[in-house]
Design a protein around this nucleic acid. Structure first.
Length: 436
RNA sequence: GUGGCUGUAGCUCAGUUGGUUAGAGCAUCGCGUUGUGGUCGCGAGGGUCGGGGGUUCGAAUCCCCUCAGCCACCCCA
C-alpha cells in the first residue's frame, strides 16, 4: 500500500461544504465591492523576488515561499501580499487611467509562518484600494466598504469596531513630547507592542527613546488613548496640549465617517500604528469587540508606495480582509450559514418500478431547460426515502412518477409547503419554470 | 524558526497496574416494513490507535524521534 502524503502544513483542503462557503464568501466580497464602485483585478500568484525586496527589504524574504526554476537564474516568490502586485500594475498604467482608480482583488496568499488559530500558511484575502486620491473621502470610502461587508454578513457595530489612527497625527504628538524624528519608527513599534510587554518594560523602552520620566507616562497615555467616534475628538488636543492644527487630518477623517454614516462603527485608538513601514497616514484595524480572535482586517494609507515601484507619485489607501479570521468570527457569533451550496431546483423520483425508466428522460429534459435537477441512484421505490434524499439536496420541488405517468401526468410536490399537484408531462418544464 | 499541550472510526468519546480478534453512540451504505419528507426492525462497511523506531513473551498503553493541530513567542501579509 502506498504511503499517505499529508497536505502541506497550514494549508486547507476544500471539501464540498468548505468550497461552498468559500464561494459564498467570495460572492459577498465581490458584490459589496462592486456596489461600492470597485473593479476587480488579479495578478500572477508569484512575482519576482525583487518585487518584494524592493518594498519590504530583505527581512521579508524569510516569510516568503521563494524558489528558482530548475536551470533558471531568476528568483521568484509566491505572493504573500497583494499590494506590491497592485503597485506594479498601477505604475504600468498610471498615466492612462482616470483617477482615482478603485480596484479590488481576492487573491490567495502564502506566507511561511507557524500556523495557529486565525493564521494559516495560505489564505484568501479581499483587497480593496483607492489609488490616486489623497482626500479623506477615499480613506472613509474604503472603510465604509469594509463596514458594508461586515454588515452584509450580519455583524453589528456592537460586535466589531474599526480602530482608527493616523500616523502623522501620532508623529506630531510624539515630536512635541520630545521623540526625535529618527526614533519615530522605534516609537511606533513600541506603541504597537504596548499590550504585549510589561509596564516596566514599556517604561524602560520609552525612556530609551530619549523621554524623561514625566513624558514616559504621557507617552503611555498616547498608547492607550481611545475615543469613541461619538466623543469629542478634540479631547486629544486638550489631553496632550498640542495645537489643533496637529490633529486636522484626524478631524477631517472624523467628519467623513459621519458623512458616510459609519461613525458608530469607528473608534480612535492612537496605539494602532500597524507594523508595515510603508503606511503614511490613516491606519486602521478591524477587531471583534470580544477580543477572542485576531484582527479581521487591516489597512491604511500608503502615499509613497506607487512611486517606489517606478510609477508617478500617487497617493493610495486600502485594506486587506482575510477569509480565516472572518470565518472564525462569523462562526463564533452563529452567523456562518451551513447551507450555502447551490440548492437543487427539482428532484425526480419514481414511486413504482414501471415508472423508473422515465426518470432518466425527464431529468435530461429538465436539465436541458436549465433547471438544477437531481435524482437518486438507489433502486428503491420507497417514496419516503427518496423524498428524504430530495430534502437533503434542498430541492424546491419533487417530480413524482407513478402509474399515472403512463397516461401522461406526473406529480409535482412543493417540498416547502408539501402541496402536490398533477401536471401534464408536456407542460412540466413550463410549470416548473413558472413556479421557480 | 523557538518552547508548551494534544493526537483512538467521518464526528463525540470509552478502552482496567502493559494481556486474546480495539469498542459504543451518532453519521454513512444496504435490506425490510409502513408507500409522500416520519417511525420501527435487520445487517454492512469504515481504525496499520497520526507516522517510524525501541523496551517487552506481549504496546493504543512505557521510552525516543518525527508529523500535524492548538497555545505562547517571533511576525503580522
Amino acid at each position: 500500500m502506498a504511503e499517505k502524503i499529508q497536505k502541506p502544513r497550514g494549508t486547507r483542503d476544500f471539501y464540498p461544504e468548505d468550497m461552498a462557503w468559500r464561494r459564498h464568501l467570495e460572492a459577498r466580497w465581490r458584490a459589496v465591492a462592486v456596489r461600492n464602485g470597485f473593479e476587480e483585478v488579479d495578478g500572477p500568484i508569484y512575482e519576482t523576488l525583487d518585487l518584494y525586496k524592493r518594498k519590504s527589504g530583505e527581512g521579508i524574504v524569510s516569510e516568503l515561499f521563494s524558489f528558482r526554476r530548475t536551470g533558471g537564474e531568476v528568483d521568484y516568490a509566491v505572493r504573500a501580499e497583494f499590494t506590491p502586485t497592485l503597485a506594479r500594475m498601477v505604475a504600468e498604467r498610471a498615466n492612462t487611467m482616470p483617477k482615482p482608480v478603485k480596484w479590488f482583488a481576492m487573491p490567495n496568499l502564502c506566507r511561511a509562518e507557524a500556523p495557529q488559530r486565525g493564521r494559516l500558511r495560505e489564505h484568501w484575502q479581499w483587497n480593496v484600494d483607492v489609488i490616486g486620491s489623497d482626500s479623506p473621502v477615499a480613506d472613509a470610502e474604503v472603510i465604509f466598504t469594509a463596514v458594508d461587508l461586515l454588515r452584509e454578513m450580519g455583524l453589528t457595530s456592537q460586535q466589531v469596531k474599526v480602530k482608527v489612527s493616523h500616523r502623522d497625527v501620532v508623529r506630531r504628538i510624539l515630536l512635541r513630547m520630545g521623540v526625535a524624528e529618527d526614533k519615530m519608527i522605534d516609537a511606533f513599534t513600541l506603541l504597537d507592542r504596548r499590550d504585549k510587554i510589561t509596564p516596566d518594560d514599556f517604561a524602560r523602552q520609552a525612556a530609551a527613546l530619549g523621554l524623561d520620566a514625566a513624558t514616559v507616562e504621557r507617552f503611555n497615555q498616547v498608547a492607550r488613548t481611545r475615543l469613541r467616534s461619538s466623543d469629542d475628538w478634540s479631547r486629544i488636543v486638550d489631553d496632550f496640549g498640542i495645537p489643533e492644527s496637529d490633529v486636522t487630518q484626524l478631524r477631517l477623517l472624523h467628519d467623513q465617517f459621519h458623512a458616510f454614516g459609519i461613525a458608530e462603527w469607528c473608534e480612535y485608538d492612537l496605539g494602532i500604528v500597524r507594523g508595515l513601514a510603508y503606511y503614511t497616514g490613516t491606519v486602521f484595524e478591524i477587531h471583534e469587540t470580544s477580543g477572542a480572535e485576531r484582527a479581521i482586517a487591516g489597512g491604511g494609507r500608503y502615499d509613497n508606495l506607487i512611486e517606489s515601484f517606478g510609477g508617478p507619485a500617487t497617493p493610495a489607501v486600502g485594506f486587506g480582509m482575510g477569509d480565516v479570521v472572518l470565518s472564525l468570527v462569523l462562526e463564533d457569533r452563529g452567523l456562518k450559514p451551513t447551507d450555502v451550496a447551490p440548492p437543487a431546483d427539482v428532484f425526480v423520483l419514481a414511486a413504482t418500478a414501471d415508472a423508473q425508466p422515465l426518470v432518466g428522460p425527464i431529468t435530461a429534459e429538465l436539465r436541458a431547460a436549465g433547471l438544477h435537477t437531481r435524482f437518486s441512484y438507489k433502486t428503491t421505490t420507497n417514496v419516503g426515502k427518496l423524498l428524504k434524499d430530495a430534502t437533503n439536496c434542498r430541492a424546491r420541488f419533487a417530480v413524482i412518477l407513478d402509474d399515472k405517468a403512463a397516461s401522461g401526468t406526473v406529480g409535482v410536490k412543493d417540498l416547502a409547503s408539501g402541496e402536490q399537484v398533477e401536471v401534464a408531462r408536456d407542460a412540466l418544464v413550463e410549470h416548473l419554470r413558472d413556479a421557480i
